[in-house]
Amino acid sequence: MGGNSTQATMFELTGLTDNTRIVPFLFTFFLIVYTVTLIGNIGMMGLVYAFSSLHTPMYYFLSFLSLVDLIYSSAITPKMVVDLISVKKSISFIGCVLQIYFYAALASIEVLLLSSMSYDRYAAICHPLHYVSVMTKEKCFCLVLVSFSVGLLQSLAQTSCVFSLHFCRSNLIDHFYCEIPPLLKLSCSDTFFCEVLTLFFVSTLGLYSLVSVLVSYTLIVSSILKMKSAKGRQKAFSTCSSHLMCVSIFFITVFFIYLRPDTRVLEKQDKVASVFYSVVTPMLNPLIYSLRNHEVKRVVLRAMQTC
């Protein structure tokens, strides 16, 4: 450990941008994004709860995905929006701990829920006659419970490791929220174990989820191509397309940040990618499912007519 052994009690954030001319635009844009995120995810949970036609495994998982996106976005976006118009962008030590814990937990829960949703689509399309017996309420509950348990426990391990280190150099985090890679750069302790631990969890959970999605959709596409009815093929592809879009956006940005060599050249791109998976994706998920899913659109129209 280096010379000054005083542990940091407060961290400063560089923020999203230092270009003051675009701050009003960014403030307005992300305020709208967060408002749409709240309305979209709360609305999706409300629709699934209120309409019996959505009481199926697919929408059961989707309601939990909306809950995760809602909390995930709320852990990061409000602070980021306030910091855009603040002269001093600071966060307490405890605030930083909570922010890292929640985003690490919720990101992991999201990838596991996405893999569960791909399994659900595989069962529905490839084994339609046995779907009801395969995707029981008990199995759906267990998949959600495992997703939350694994996500919360692995996040506890990562957060405990990071904050067992000493931060006695600069307290300036080069990011718009507390993120593990830039935070590790501030430590004067040996960060090798924490880096390996983070890489292990990100790669293990990410690759497990990605492989399960790819395998499921390989089997799904194979099954769809064997269908004789063109209408049946179109319906099956329409059902899966929204899920594939959400999976693609999330995985591309997460893997870009965590599963590449560390380099200062891409630090600005890191912030852009972080904005996508922590701020924009939670807004897009309910919108994609609403716009590309006929059942959800039908229920939304019914709800509007009722109101």
Rank of each mutant, 00 (worst) to 15 (best):
G3M: 08
E12P: 00
G15S: 04
L16H: 03
D18K: 02
D18F: 00
I22A: 11
P24Q: 12
L26K: 07
G40I: 02
V48R: 04
S52N: 13
M58V: 06
S63W: 01
F64C: 08
K79H: 12
I85Y: 01
S90R: 10
I91F: 03
C96S: 13
C96M: 04
S108R: 05
S108V: 07
A124C: 05
H127D: 03
F141D: 01
C142S: 09
S147R: 07
G151W: 05
S155N: 07
V162P: 08
F163G: 05
L165E: 10
D174G: 02
E179T: 04
E179G: 05
L186N: 03
S187Q: 08
C188D: 15
C194R: 01
V202F: 13
L205N: 09
Y208T: 07
S209L: 06
S209A: 10
L214E: 05
V221E: 12
V221M: 11
A230W: 14
K231Q: 13
K235L: 13
S241V: 06
H243L: 15
F250T: 04
D262C: 06
L266Q: 07
F276N: 10
V279N: 14
V279P: 00
I288S: 02
S290Q: 05
R292M: 12
R292A: 06
H294P: 00
